[in-house]
Amino acid sequence: MITHPRTDELAESVRLWIDEIRPTLDPRNAFLARVAANAMATIARELMQGPAAEASAVAGMAAVLGHDGTFAELNSELCARIRAGELTVETPGLLTALAAIARNQIAIDQPSYKPEGTPAA
């Protein structure tokens, strides 16, 4: 992809502009503008971190399922086998793999979120 600018930089420029005009908006639109700025930040993070997160998820799911596949294939099969009761919280490696996937996803979606179990700062 071209680099002048990169897509994440485009997203970042839109986010900065939204933040700039936010103080001029009525309360409802100011709130929605904050949400929109957050959406742009999420897009930028996904562009930067998404490929590595997906590769890691694919590796983690493949290890649990014992074969390779695309993200969509492995994710579907994982869901189906959990639903069928073939994979449970007792399955070795399952929770560890799911925890890593969840960590990478929250780092994209909401990096400031402190999940259950986070100790006091």
Partner: peptide
């Protein structure tokens, strides 16, 4: 996109 916050919590509760 807040689904992942519940997943991050659920996986800890499941552990």
């Amino acid at each position: 996109r807040r689904v992942s916050e519940t997943e991050a919590d659920l996986v800890v509760l499941l552990e």
